[in-house]
């Protein structure tokens, strides 16, 4: 991804950048002190594109996803630098009221836990209808009709009856479908899915991914799919972003990435994928553990776990992203190394 200075048009056509994050850094304050959680994030999502975001637990994937729509509470966060351009508008500079108009209407979000993602006190149909009415200002009856239609779209059978159910009366898979219906109710141009299938069993997981794939094709929306399961990413995404300790380590088109990753961390992730076996969530092959939250190493953040690290080179200067054939990589040795991909 090369940065160009071209102005984004208000309505991007296919292939243009719908979302662009430039040098975004964010600190969080879990306690009294601010700790760096996201560092110099650069990414681009073109319209119609499906981008995968992988990385170990705690690498900042969810925080990044929440930041994209200004959902990280201001009270505990501090933006250090950067911009987040959605349709050419800097989201980080928007007022809360304008952000709320975008959320749910232009950008839909779904999350990992379908069990708890819906309000237990209201019927699921009413919750989806509330979102529709909020953004479209239609009547109750119209919203209801739209809910039924959307429930059909996300393949919920018997939608009239299901709309009147409370969340606890539905299975995990159905609840996730309701969440998807809510997220796409206003036909957003971008869907952010934060581990949408992690909490589901394998069969349901496959069905939900299939549904997302179909919706994406029908509605021509872009998707950011967060997962720590590279097999899911491989199957689903056009491009992948690898995150480590709050930084993007590599971004590449999916096919070249799997054959020839450019970052040692990405390579380690790929090798941790057992062939022809259900993917493991634990990245057990990789020794060591990520740095504690807020700790900033003087050089490359991955250096202490990297088998290719060279003392005096890798641990002295912070590394920036540099272009590759298929994307970008944050490794000063990228050109010297030939790394192994998946399936030897």
């Amino acid at each position: 991804m090369t940065r160009n200075s071209r102005e984004e048009s208000a309505a991007p056509t296919r292939g243009d950048a719908l979302l662009r994050v430039e040098g975004f850094s964010l600190d969080l304050a879990p306690g009294r002190e601010y700790l760096s959680v996201l560092n110099d994030i650069d990414l681009e999502v073109r319209s119609g594109e499906v981008v995968g975001l992988v990385g170990e637990s705690g690498s900042g994937k969810s925080t990044l996803a929440m930041s994209l729509m200004g959902l990280v509470p201001k009270r505990i966060s501090r933006q250090r630098s950067g911009r987040i351009l959605f349709n050419g508008v800097d989201v980080t500079a928007l007022r809360e009221r304008d952000l709320r108009a975008i959320r749910g209407r232009d950008v839909g979000m779904i999350f990992q836990e379908p069990m708890t993602a819906l309000d237990p006190a209201y019927r699921v149909g009413d919750q989806v209808a509330e979102v529709i009415r909020r953004h479209r200002g239609v009547s109750r009856a119209e919203a209801r009709a739209q809910v039924i239609e959307d429930f059909r779209l996300v393949e919920i059978s018997d939608p009239e009856r299901r709309a009147d159910a409370y969340p606890h009366e539905l299975s995990g898979g159905l609840r996730q479908r309701v969440c998807i219906a809510m997220a796409i109710a206003c036909r957003p141009s971008l869907l952010i899915a934060d581990e949408p299938t992690t909490a589901l069993d394998v069969t349901t997981q496959a069905q939900i991914l299939e549904l997302l794939r179909r919706l994406r094709a029908e509605m021509d929306m872009s998707i950011v799919l967060i997962s720590h399961d590279l097999a899911v990413i491989a199957e689903f995404c056009d491009r992948v972003l690898v995150m480590y300790a709050g930084q993007i380590m590599e971004q590449a088109m999916i096919d070249p990435f799997f054959v020839r990753p450019r970052h040692p961390y990405a390579s380690a992730l790929l090798q941790a994928l057992p062939e022809n076996q259900p993917p493991l969530n634990e990245l057990s092959v990789l020794p060591g553990s990520p740095p504690p939250l807020g700790y900033v190493a003087p050089g490359c953040r991955f250096a202490n776990r990297c088998e290719f690290a060279q003392a005096g080179r890798c641990d002295t200067h912070a590394v920036s992203l540099s272009p590759t054939d298929a994307g970008e990589v944050r490794c000063i040795r990228a050109d010297e190394l030939v790394l192994e991909g998946a399936g030897q």
């Binding site: 729509m69 959320r103 979000m109 993602a117 819906l118 309000d119 237990p120 509330e130």
Partner: peptide
């Protein structure tokens, strides 16, 4: 702090609705 509040906020509902109604 519950997930459903995050869902409601991510769907663009107003704080009055998120806090008062939900």
């Amino acid at each position: 702090r519950r997930d459903y509040v995050r869902t409601m906020r991510s769907a663009g509902l107003s704080e009055i609705s998120v806090v008062g109604k939900h």
